[in-house]
């Protein structure tokens, strides 16, 4: 056991964060300010998500941490270790066995259940930020529901690229009221946000928490003649042959060699275990033999 309080943060801080989470759940999509603490990791590494996870975890929880869909990248490994040491909770890489999932930039491929919580790490919670630099003004725009500016961004995309080129952090409207930044998830994941699990968003440096209760209506913004499209690379996974998952493109050599693999490592591994083999994959059991 460690000398830290359970899950690193002191109880008063966790209560403060829980209040912000409850307020966020009561007003889906609204950015609730909270007194973000300094965490033992730099801003940009998920300080917001970690604080939300710390306030959410109980000793019986099982934690999964993913970074760009993967369980084995630096960010994911260090946050998982952090909670193993400070909260002594069980951890897993399997989506279905986790009760709390902290994520950076992806939603797991497997459908989440009502007894699960998905915690997002958010770098910039304000969807209007790059068009309107003033925080005072953006808050007023949210409160008066003046969201025309968000479409100016999409207009610019079409004018410059012939299509809506925003491919991640694609703005959504929540329950017909607040426009929300879904954190930098690919727009492929946007339709998945109407899910059974609770979704919590934490931005540490910007000191904001927002939330989506289960089954909240989440609509991606678009134009009538340029409707929203959840795009992905037009390939099947080269390891597990999945055609419905979001893919990473991996450069293999300097002669144009590349392969497409699932960004969700757990999804890919479980498919391979079940015997699916992609174009460049090998059978797992033969590997072992």
């Amino acid at each position: 056991m460690s000398d830290y309080n359970f899950a690193y943060l002191d109880e008063q801080t966790k209560r403060m964060i829980r209040r912000a989470i409850l307020k966020g759940l009561a007003i889906p999509g609204y950015q609730v300010p909270f007194a973000s603490r300094e965490m033992p990791m730099p801003y940009g590494w998920g300080t917001g998500g970690v604080q939300v996870s710390a306030a959410t975890l109980t000793p019986d929880d099982t934690l999964k941490v993913i970074d760009q869909g993967a369980d084995d990248t630096t960010n994911a490994v260090s946050i998982r270790k952090f909670f193993e040491r400070t909260a002594n909770v069980g951890t897993t890489e399997e989506t279905s066995k986790a009760s709390v999932i902290q994520t950076r930039h992806r939603i797991p491929e497997e459908d989440l259940r009502e007894d699960q919580i998905l915690v997002y790490q958010v770098p910039i919670p304000e969807p209007l930020r790059f068009l309107e630099p003033s925080e005072v003004e953006t808050r007023k725009m949210h409160s008066l529901e003046e969201y025309g500016l968000m479409h100016v961004k999409l207009y610019e995309d079409i004018a410059q690229h012939g299509a809506i080129a925003t491919s991640y952090a694609y703005p959504v409207k929540v329950e017909g009221r607040y426009v929300m930044d879904p954190s930098p998830i690919p727009k492929f994941d946007n339709p998945k946000m109407e899910m059974a699990a609770i979704q919590l968003f934490g931005a540490g440096r910007e000191q904001r928490i927002y939330a989506l209760p289960p089954y909240t209506q989440v609509v991606s913004l678009d134009f009538e003649d340029y409707p929203f499209e959840a795009s992905k690379a037009e390939h099947a996974c080269d390891l597990c042959a999945a055609e419905d998952s979001y893919l990473d493109e991996v450069i293999m050599d300097d002669a144009g060699g590349r392969m497409f693999v699932c960004s969700d490592t757990d999804y890919c591994a479980s498919r391979r275990k079940a015997g699916h083999v992609g174009a460049q994959g090998t059978n797992l059991e033969e590997d072992a033999a």
Binding site: V152, F223, D225
Partner: peptide
């Protein structure tokens, strides 16, 4: 276009 979009135009 901004003012048009601000009053609800949604057809590019």
């Amino acid at each position: 276009g901004e003012r048009l979009m601000a009053v609800g135009a949604r057809h590019y």
